[in-house]
Design a protein around this nucleic acid. Structure first.
Lengths: 150, 150
DNA sequence: ATCGTTGCAAAATTTTTGCAATTAG
DNA sequence: CTAATTGCAAAAATTTTGCAACGAT
């Protein structure tokens, strides 16, 4: 845990962006929950819960854009579905995305630096590609497919 | 170049899927053009051009799903915008995606096995994260941001 | 003949944009 | 006061689904 809400707010302020109640809340939620594979929609819900208000989706997306432009945040597509958000300094883990069931497995960064095949094998993951995240099959889906083949 | 259209068609047939004119054409286009960052829409256009016909988007998406289920194809989101398609055996390159301008830089796989930082630096890329593809700034955008900071 | 596949049209999902009203600085 | 930001509503963009007709095996 490194970047906190104040850091993010400060970065926005330094860039001449204005600090509104919404942006404050967005930064707080992100600082607290970003490791949780938050989607824009999740973020919207949490912000509105926190503010008991009606922050608009457009505000969420525009603030996400601003934070991305500042290099504080990234959005990432894990297989299908909406993008999930990550603080840029959260390099604690990577994802293995199963192309069959969509499950994602977090693996820590240290392991990533080792051979990719080793890392995949370690998680029972059959890597069919290392294109953009590790796409492949998780243990269960690999087993199912194997059984279909005989 | 390894997987060709016949390979893909054969794989579909082996799985009990039927070979229709559309699927045949889809496999041909993918075998020819997949290295070209083809989107579902690009694929649709090329298939319809080839068939002088009106293949529906739903057919494209359903066939993409089938090919993914067979492990022959993957879709990948490069930053914003629609997913691009890659044959699973095309491990010839990876992507560096600039989070500022969206530009993607292809880098060959060999380099990827080396230290990630080294690989990024080699392309004038400042990696702010290696979450799901290498997200960061391309040379130009990094320069622009640097100039803003002084 | 059977049942997977298609096209079409409609819907669902996710994200973007225009604009008048609001609000931070 | 000024210009950035917001909410709202509408639109754009991408992908999914229902269904009757069609076509591969």
């Amino acid at each position: 845990m490194h970047v906190n809400a104040s850091d993010m707010v400060e970065a926005l302020r330094r860039s001449g962006l204005r600090i509104t109640v919404s942006r404050q809340a967005i930064c707080e939620v992100l600082a607290t929950d970003h490791h949780n594979h938050l989607t824009a929609n999740d973020l919207l819900a949490k912000v509105n819960q926190k503010l008991r208000g009606k922050v608009a989706p457009s505000t969420i997306y525009r603030t996400i854009d601003a934070l991305e432009a500042e290099g504080l945040l990234e959005h990432v597509h894990l297989g299908h579905g909406p993008a999930v958000l990550h603080l840029s300094d959260d390099s604690s883990h990577h994802h293995l995305v199963c192309e069959s069931c969509g499950r994602t497995i977090d693996v820590d960064t240290g392991a990533f630096d080792a051979a990719i095949g080793l890392l995949a094998a370690k998680n029972g993951f059959v890597a069919s590609s290392v294109h953009y995240a590790l796409i492949g099959q998780c243990e269960e889906c690999a087993a199912i497919i194997a059984s279909h083949l005989q």
